[in-house]
Simulated scan of single mutants.
Amino acid sequence: MSKATFAVSMIALGLGCSSAVMANTKVPVVTSFSVLGDLVQQVGGDHVAITNLVKANGDAHVYNPAPMDAKAIASAQLVVMNGLEFEGWMPRLLESSNFKGNKVLAADGIEVIKGHSCSCGGHGHHDDHDHDHDHDHDHDHDHDHDHDHDHDHDHDHDHDHDHDHDHDHKHDHGHAHGEFDPHSWHSIKNVKVYVKNIEQGLTKVDPNNAEDYQRNAANYIQQLDKLDIELHKKVALIPEDKRSVITPHAAFAYMARDYNIDFHAPQGTSTESEASAGDVANIIKQIRSEGIKAVFVENISDNRLIEQISRETDAKIGGQLYSDALSEPTGPAPTYLKMMEYNIDTIVNALK
């Protein structure tokens, strides 16, 4: 073999290796918390390498980002977060990381529920949702989406400013979310929107695998639809007037709306909000007057208040619900599908 032929062969071999390496490179994606980590994995499959910030059983309300989080974001092609001001620490983290990649606000386009700092004695799922606000919210975020969400930090700032006065009279002494309840993943209908937003985000940064993302998303939505039917059948076993549930913080308004379950909580929509003595007294009074049989603890909350309420009433602790985080892989709720099934099963079994 001549030197020229050898050189050409080596160049071709080198190009072939480069192509193979490039073909096997996974898209670096950062997700804000474990539920989104699972959803991105379902859509992205083998094409994504996910760094999830708030781990299993972690509380995103009070999360303090670490230097390694900023490093992960700086090298990511896509950042996926819930939106609706759930991750109050994320705008600063993105700014400090000098992130220039693409962002997905997973909750863009859902039918939102107005947030309540305290749902004591209330029937949150019977409230009339402000559809004008839904429309405006969706429109604003569609606009964000068209512009890669580049100004979402400013939007969050304006949003906070506009609605600060909404919380002046509430019992919320810690971090408060904005006008809308951010715990929107507790609705399968909403998560189908999440999945489509994630599919679009992955397709934008990795168009070569668009067909795989589309197929994975479609398959996963079929699984969601199947589970939704099963969960409605399970809830239907409990008479409507017996579907009252007490949880530590108000994280289940979307589940309440979809499955016609009455959720009450001494704390507001953030685990940092503090329940007043009056809030707790109202919950205890309600349990006694309605004959509520079970209260529930959460995987991310300080459950001492619920334990106190249980001691002072005839309500038993009906189990642990997974609210703002999945369980560890060996736990009962390591994926979104398993979390939804486990939560409904736990509620139904306790209320039977």
Results as ranks from 00 to 15, higher is better:
H145T: 05
V104M: 02
Y259S: 08
C17P: 00
V235K: 01
F296M: 07
L231K: 01
Y322Q: 10
K233W: 01
L237Q: 14
W89N: 09
N208V: 12
E87A: 06
Y213F: 15
D172N: 13
H232Y: 02
Q214P: 02
N208C: 03
H135Q: 09
W185M: 07
L93A: 13
S34D: 01
T51F: 04
Q223N: 10
K226C: 02
H157G: 10
D225I: 06
Y336W: 12
F180V: 14
D162S: 12
G201W: 02
H165T: 10
P266D: 06
T269K: 05
E87S: 03
C120T: 15
K192C: 09
T203N: 12
S244I: 09
K242N: 13
S301M: 08
Q42D: 04
H116I: 13
A253T: 15
V35R: 06
D212G: 03
N303L: 11
A7T: 10
G124H: 09
Q42S: 09
D148H: 07
H177D: 04
I300H: 05
K293A: 12
V191Y: 03
S96V: 13
D302T: 07
G101V: 09
K26P: 00
T203Q: 12
N52G: 08
A49W: 00
V35A: 02
H137T: 09
E274R: 15
D144E: 15
E272K: 01
T5V: 15
R257A: 14
P65V: 11
S323R: 11
Q41C: 02
H149L: 03
V30I: 10
V195K: 09
D46W: 00
A56I: 04
D164V: 05
D46G: 09
E298L: 07
E298I: 01
